[in-house]
Each structure stands twice: as structure tokens, then as C-alpha cells.
Write a protein that binds this DNA or RNA. Structure first.
Length: 506
RNA sequence: GAUUCGCUAGCUCAGUAGGUAGAGCAUCGCCCUUUUAAGGCGGGGGUCCUGGGUUCGAAUCCCAGGCGGAUCACCA
């Protein structure tokens, strides 16, 4: 039964059995009434010495310093750690000292979850501490926790191996409190965005993840299969086309926080499943949407940090409105000194070569322009900046520009050298939309495995008439990375995708 | 996918002219009633990622593979 266990695991299982023999349930069922959390004691006790004379608190035992008949220990709850002072004769007032001598000193381990009652005081060393009057085991831990220690801000034996941190996120969350904080901030961010959109009266909706046709973005999908329907289904790569159907149906504004799935490369900016927020608002255009994005993101920064400036790596990024706005042609001219407006494809190719921008001959005009922008401009745009008016070939769902030839009414917000969101005045001309789909099909025939499929039902919806609409997609993971100064997407996802750790030959 | 680095005790890491595998914390035993990286004394704990090869002998050298990190390419 103990085969394959380490020495320490065997010791803990033996302790578990000893506890049971002593009549102690290592996994008791009843509610343990908690009346305070550690952070509250630490914040309020110094100025309110009479408070907290009868606290009841639960958490994980993270350290233990035994000094004969008295001990210090640290209890960690969701809000942090607080020191416990455990005196033998206080938790064992009678003759029987088993609870202290045997249970606490020998059978409990670091990592065990306990509930205690007691009163708060300050030790000679000046640390706020709970003097324990009673102690109860709430859950026995059978595995050894990595022990991270600190002294004078120096950290010892930090648990930093990314592989272990991501695979065993629960351990990461236990021993690295700043990790818990990142995910709290992620939640604040989402709540802030949702509150902003709700205040404007938009409807939060849910649309299918399993789709017979994937669309709304250029990406390779995950494929799956429905047995009863006997058909192939795809995991959505975007929810754009369904949300626009809802605008056709008469809602004035709809949004969705959606998990989307793209079967593509993985790195510190890409996970196969990621979260986007998409928003569609009728009777608005992309100019209006730029105002909304600035206002919304500025509010998020304020809700998270109380100010509009956020430190991201080396850069201090300021989300204060208004953000800079520049057309794609202007920003390319600014960073390269070349005016590419109106150039032929041939001329663009030679410009790209002059600028050392890698291109290949499958790239058409729009793609080359995008490539020049991506190489020469995007990485240099640190402060939030709107880039507007994209080539039509790259944007099959965006409306043609009201006055500029061969461009569409589209913008992206760039921040810290990366795209933060993508938006346009939505194409609502069903004839034009069909033509755009058809040119995508041509790309597909030529082997572009990211080209869009033609969605007849979506076209039917547009033929019933969609109001002029502004649409937005904003990457929640990317935004969270910026707002929490996290260098990798894996740091803002609880469970980033990884290969199975089971050895192939095992 | 390419390049490169890494994988040794529960954790963090040492460990080559190839020669019985180490430290700190954790753990086990003893001492200690305000300590805090508690301390003192003593003990135990290893598939050195896996599989081959070279060798009298491999954690160490060679080959193949696994997993991960970083960078690059595609994509949000």
C-alpha cells in the first residue's frame, strides 16, 4: 500500500492512522465557524487592542517552531499569514497533554489545514499573534509542500520552476501569494469591464462554442465530432458572426466574454484557449468605438490601481484619455520615413526589401503593408495608440472606408508593442459581404488554411438588414498581462495548456 | 517547427582529468514556555528524466528519446 511513496509521504500516512487511533477525524465534515480573516486582524488590531479577544480562524499551517511546551506557528488563510502562539497548558488545560505533545508536535505537519480559536496579542518581538485556546485538525495533508522562507525581504528556496508552477498551480497558489493576487486582479478587471458595459445598457449574451462553421477571424480551428448529429463541429475561433446575428435580431448592444480556441502555435503570448470580450453596438461607428475603448480601459486601470499609470516591465504606461490616434499610413511614414500611400504592389515589395522587412511572394498588398507595420511600428508603440484605416484585403468583415479608397474603417489599439484590441465599423452590406467571403474562398483554394469559410446563414441574416454597427474584440488575457505586469500569458491563466507530464514510456 | 539551455532528495541547488552521490530547508529522535530563515545535538531519505552505447567502472563522455524554459517563425 505504501509502495512508491517517499519516506515523508509514508510518515504522513502513518501520522494519519495514529490520529484516527486517537479518535481524531482527519477529514471532519462539520462547518468550522470562522469569524475573522488574518488581514483584518493585522490591519485593525494595532489601533483596537480590545478587539479580537475571541477569534476563530482557519487555514493552512505553513510553519512551526517548537520550543518545548510552547510553539509558534504560522497560519495562512486567503488573505495572508498570521502567527499563532500555542502553549501546551492552554490547549491542554487538564492532565492529558496528548493534543499538544502528540497531536500538535508529532502528528500535524506543515500543510495541514487547521481551525483555531484564541485571542490576539503582540509578542515581545512585536508581531501580532493569536494566542491559541483551542486547535482542531480540519484536513490532513499527505504531501510535502515546498517551503519558501523569507528574511529581511530575501527569499530562500523560492518555488519558481515554471513547469511545476503551471502543472501544480494549487501548490503555486499556496506558496506564492502574489500569484493569487494576479488572479484577483484578473477578476477585478473583468468585473470592471462588465460593470462598464452593463451601465451602458448592453446585454451580456452567450453564443455557441461548438459551431458547424467557424468564422469571425482568420485562424485554424480545433475540430470535433458530434455522434448523434453525425457531423463535424468546430470550436469557435471568434464569436463575431453570432453576435452580429443578435444585432440583426434587434438588440442594440450585445457583448460576450468568450473562451475562443485557435489551433496554432503556443508561446508566452498565445494559449490554445484564450478569452476575448466582443462587443457590438448598433447605430455606432468605429470612431465612437475608439472613445468607448479609451474610457473603458482607463476605468479598468483606475479600478485596479487607483491611477491611470501602470508599470509594465521597463515601461510606465499611461492609459489616461485621450490616446494618440494615427492612421496606418501615417505611423509607417513616422517610423520609416517612407510614404507608402497609393503605392502599387511592386513598389511595396521594394519598400519592404529596402526596410529589411521579410516578405514572400504569397503576400498581397494588404499583407505587405501589415508586415511593414508589424515589423517597424508595432513593437515601438508603447503608450496606448489607436492605429486606424487598414487595407481592405485583411479585413473581410469590416466596412469600406467612408471616403478612403481600398481601406476599411478599422482600428487596433496598440500598447506595450502589442495589439490590445481590434474593432471596426461592421460590414452590413450583404452583397459586399458575399463578395468578401468569396475572395476568402479563393485564398483558401490557393492553400491559405486560415481563410474564412462562407457562412450562408450569416449572409441570410445580413440580407434581412443589420443596422450600422460598431464592433470590438479585446483580448482579456493580454489586457490582464499588461495590467498585472505579467510577462507571460501562462501567468494570467490558472491552467495553461501543457503536454501531459506522464512519461511516454512509463 | 528551428535554435539554445535545463532536468540530481519533498523544495532550492552543489557535484568532470569518469572511481561507493552532497549542502541548506523539510523530515525522524532528543532538549528547549514569546520565537520568527528560531536554536543545539544526533539520524534517515536518491530510478542523478528515460533508453541505448563507450568503459573494469558513467550523474559526469557519446547517441536517441521525453518534458520544460528562452529566442525566432505563424497567430490574439
Amino acid at each position: 500500500m505504501t509502495t512508491g511513496l517517499t519516506e515523508q509521504e509514508i510518515i504522513r500516512r502513518n501520522s494519519l492512522n495514529e490520529l484516527i487511533k486517537l479518535g481524531i477525524d482527519p477529514y471532519p465534515a462539520p462547518t468550522f465557524e470562522v469569524n475573522v480573516r488574518s488581514s483584518e486582524i493585522k490591519e485593525r488590531f494595532p489601533d483596537n487592542n480590545t478587539l479580537f479577544q475571541n477569534v476563530s480562524i482557519a487555514g493552512r499551517m505553513m510553519s512551526r517552531r517548537i520550543m518545548g511546551a510552547a510553539s509558534f506557528s504560522e497560519l495562512q488563510d486567503e488573505t495572508g499569514r498570521i502567527q499563532l502562539y500555542i502553549k501546551r497548558d492552554d490547549i491542554c488545560p487538564g492532565e492529558d497533554k496528548t493534543l499538544y505533545n502528540t497531536v500538535f508536535k508529532k502528528l500535524l505537519d506543515i500543510g495541514d489545514i487547521i481551525g483555531i480559536t484564541g485571542f490576539v496579542f503582540i509578542t515581545q518581538m512585536g508581531e501580532i499573534t493569536i494566542h491559541v485556546k483551542s486547535l482542531k485538525l480540519l484536513s490532513k495533508s499527505l504531501r510535502v509542500l515546498p517551503i519558501v522562507k523569507e528574511k529581511e525581504d530575501a527569499v530562500f528556496d523560492a518555488y519558481t520552476d515554471p513547469e511545476q508552477r503551471y502543472r501544480q498551480r494549487y501548490v503555486d497558489l499556496i506558496v506564492n501569494p502574489e500569484v493569487r493576487e494576479v488572479f484577483v486582479k484578473r477578476n477585478i478587471l473583468i468585473n470592471s469591464m462588465r460593470g462598464f458595459l452593463n451601465t451602458l445598457g448592453y446585454l451580456e449574451v452567450e453564443t455557441p462554442i461548438l459551431q458547424p462553421l467557424y468564422g469571425g477571424a482568420t485562424a485554424r480551428p480545433f475540430k470535433t465530432y458530434h455522434n448523434t448529429l453525425d457531423m463535424t463541429l468546430y470550436l469557435r475561433i471568434a464569436n463575431e458572426l453570432y453576435l452580429k446575428r443578435l444585432i440583426v435580431g434587434g438588440y442594440q448592444g450585445v457583448y460576450e466574454f468568450s473562451k475562443d480556441f485557435r489551433n496554432e502555435g503556443m508561446d508566452r503570448f498565445h494559449n490554445p484557449e484564450f478569452t476575448q470580450m466582443e462587443l457590438y453596438v448598433a447605430y455606432k461607428d468605429y470612431e465612437w468605438m475608439m472613445d468607448l475603448v479609451e474610457e473603458m480601459v482607463e476605468k479598468i486601470a483606475l479600478d485596479l490601481h487607483g491611477k491611470t499609470q501602470v508599470q509594465v516591465g521597463e515601461n510606465l504606461i499611461d492609459f489616461k484619455r485621450p490616446w494618440k490616434r494615427s492612421t496606418m499610413f501615417d505611423v509607417i511614414r513616422q517610423f520609416t520615413g517612407v510614404n507608402i500611400e497609393g503605392l502599387s504592389e511592386e513598389a511595396l515589395v521594394s519598400v519592404a526589401k529596402e526596410l529589411n522587412v521579410p516578405i514572400d511572394n504569397t503576400m498581397a498588398k494588404g499583407k505587405i503593408i501589415d508586415q511593414i507595420f508589424g515589423e517597424k511600428c508595432e513593437p515601438l508603440l508603447i503608450q496606448p495608440t489607436f492605429i486606424t484605416d487598414y487595407p481592405v484585403e485583411m479585413s473581410p468583415l469590416a466596412k469600406k472606408h467612408r471616403c478612403k479608397e481600398s481601406l476599411v474603417e478599422r482600428f487596433e489599439a496598440i500598447c506595450n508593442g502589442k495589439e490590445l484590441c481590434n474593432a471596426f465599423s461592421e460590414l452590413n452590406d450583404p452583397i459586399d459581404q458575399r463578395a468578401r467571403f468569396e475572395s476568402q474562398l479563393e485564398l483558401g483554394k490557393r492553400g491559405d488554411d486560415e481563410s474564412m469559410a462562407l457562412d450562408e446563414d450569416f449572409l441570410r441574416a445580413l440580407e434581412f438588414g443589420m443596422p450600422p454597427t460598431a464592433g470590438l474584440g479585446i483580448g482579456i488575457d493580454r489586457l490582464t498581462m499588461i495590467m498585472t505586469n505579467s510577462p507571460s500569458i501562462q501567468d494570467v491563466l490558472f491552467f495553461p495548456q501543457m503536454r501531459p507530464e506522464q512519461r511516454a514510456n512509463g
